[in-house]
Design a protein around this nucleic acid. Structure first.
Lengths: 232, 232
DNA sequence: TCAATAGTGTCTATTAGACAATATACT
DNA sequence: AGTATATTGTCTAATAGACACTATTGA
């Protein structure tokens, strides 16, 4: 019978990004500090084995893990890729399916996770850490994908709670890209892309009140016809 | 022990694309016609179980299957994504890792596969077939990714054997996109992108001889700053 | 010479970005 | 009024696409 092959371990890992304190952060967890477990005490991506009884699909599994860690039920969720080889897990040949999620900033950063073993960490700092398994490599891939897509898609909108204003959205772009953008060109681009719908005026602490917006489809991002121009 | 979970089946499937007879084709195989196997006699993507003894990694597994089917050893290979749920394989909870490969046209189409159970099929025709497992869904995703990327990357260059000329490359773009492109704009774009290197003059059957080119890095594609403009 | 294809030049419509000007909020 | 922010308008430089023109091959 063909299913008699020795089966690899199958896991799902989730890269959960949010904007906290003006910075892009990712939720990491500490590996349990027990001798039986691999990488004890090391920071890692939240994740774990697929439960063939509980999880109807890989995506379901990712959603479950996200909900367990953050309580968020309807994030923007995208598959990042899979990593599988004989070496990445000392317990044996294993394959992990990585998803990345963009959520709006949780009100109380640590409290949402319910546990002290989870923590929001700035992405650059996380990228410098030596994470468990091949998670550093996976994080690097996620950041590359995210920063790449921010250049030509509406992804950053998923990091804001609605309604948000265009200046707020621009600020998110600037934080993720690490460079300032022109106000006028930015507005034209966002409005022309047609993924926003007006949601009434909102007023901030100072100055003129601004139009609030929400995204029309929270599962789908808009694609711009060009990337943002790099200053000469 | 945490590894006592019931493990899903793990497979790898490969979407192998090539340009044959002026059309984009994909290599499909027939499922064995034995009663024990799922989807007997149905067309499917080439692939199979990960062999934890033979395969050092998922990518290795994909390369192995590609080589077994086509003899090609150095294709452009990119991970497409993974599909896993309780229903897709009647033998049990299974997860497949899909890779897509772009290869230059094999000299003798059928012969390379060595077997009559494999066949090059036009992508549109393949997309209309009811393939085994969820392979129709995977093929649809691959075509969407491929056609999407052709709009703003140098991917089609991997479908040609080197050296190739710019008119040949333009023709590949036109076949995959299904619409004509302007010669002058096309050349400017390709040459400015800087992924080509000159490789001596090549002469075709008629007309003026043309400059031959090769890609500088066969693992990496170039990204253009804009998509091709859609006619108004 | 012609036919066929490769490669270049010129023009124009479009538009992203720079930046100035105006509008609206709060104190 | 004055300050702070949002929004709109104008100008300009860059450039993709349209298309005509020139160049080079073989017959």
């Amino acid at each position: 019978m063909t299913t008699d092959f020795k089966r690899p371990l199958v896991t799902v890992d989730v890269l959960i990004f949010a904007l906290l304190d003006e910075a892009l952060k990712i939720l990491l967890v500490r590996r349990p500090d027990e001798p039986g477990d691999p990488f004890p005490g090391r920071w890692a991506l939240p994740g774990g084995f697929v439960d063939v009884a509980k999880d109807r699909s890989l995506q379901d599994c990712a959603v479950r893990k996200l909900r367990e860690k953050t309580g968020v039920r309807t994030p923007y969720l995208e598959q990042l890729g899979s990593w599988g080889d004989a070496e990445r897990d000392p317990r044996g040949w294993s394959a992990t399916h990585a998803y990345f999620a963009l959520i709006d900033a949780p009100q109380r950063a640590g409290a949402d996770t319910g546990a002290a073993d989870a923590q929001w960490i700035q992405v650059d700092e996380a990228a410098r850490k030596r994470l468990a398994f091949d998670h550093s490599q996976i994080l690097a891939a996620a950041l590359e994908r995210l920063r790449g897509k921010v250049e030509y898609t509406s992804l950053p909108a998923f990091l804001l709670s609605e309604p948000f204003t265009l200046p707020q959205l621009q600020h998110v772009y600037e934080v993720v890209l690490g460079r300032p953008l022109d106000k006028s060109a930015f507005r034209k681009r966002m409005l022309d892309a047609g993924f926003l719908q007006e949601a009434g005026m909102v007023d901030g602490p100072f100055g003129r009140t601004a139009m609030g917006y929400g995204v029309i489809d929270r599962q789908q991002f808009a694609v711009f016809p060009r990337t943002f121009k790099t200053k000469p």
